[in-house]
């Protein structure tokens, strides 16, 4: 199993970080949604689904039922981006732990906010996909990928 490193955990906890999940529905159509509560616990991604009728909840149920995969992208304030592939491994919908999260959600978002489920996602692949990082990686691994004018000697190049 791949590890969620401390740097990524820290990025996840920063308030300006954007976190997006992509999960296919029953027909295989992807649904993409931002999830502010996504964070890491131990070595799993965890998020709180607040509406039982949400599209993502239905799609996650379908995903766990048929042992399929989902994707997550995390974009930090300084535009570092991480692509994650994972599988939902459990959904907690009741019990003392659920109740403690429920109370916490109400404190954060107000008394009329409900909690549907706590979803746990196990990562199978974590990859930094920030543009600068990927550009350097591509140049290194596949030097064939470039428009020639980018590597053509220019007049103002140093001799």
């Amino acid at each position: 199993m791949v590890k969620i490193n401390d740097e990524l955990k820290q990025i996840l906890d920063e308030p300006d970080t954007l976190k997006v999940l992509a999960v296919n529905n029953r027909e295989g159509v992807p649904h993409v949604v931002f999830k502010g509560t996504l964070h890491a616990e131990d070595n799993q991604f965890v998020f709180y689904d607040l509406l039982q009728s949400s599209e993502i909840n239905k799609n996650l149920v379908n995903t766990i039922w048929f042992e399929k995969k989902l994707a997550i992208n995390i974009l930090s304030k300084d535009r570092r981006s991480f692509h994650i592939v994972g599988t939902p491994v459990k959904s907690v919908t009741a019990g003392k732990y659920f109740e403690s999260v429920y109370e916490n959600i109400q404190e954060r978002f107000g008394r009329d906010t409900d909690l549907n489920a706590i979803w746990y996602i196990e990562p199978e692949q974590i990859q930094e996909v920030s543009f600068a990082y990927r550009q350097a990686e591509q140049r290194e691994k596949f030097p064939i990928l470039a428009h020639l004018d980018q590597i053509t000697r220019r007049d103002d190049d140093d001799e």
Binding site: V61, V89, K90, S91, V92, T93, A94, G95
Partner: peptide
């Protein structure tokens, strides 16, 4: 019993 998909 509690099922992994959150059902019972």
């Amino acid at each position: 019993l509690i099922w992994k998909d959150g059902s019972y």
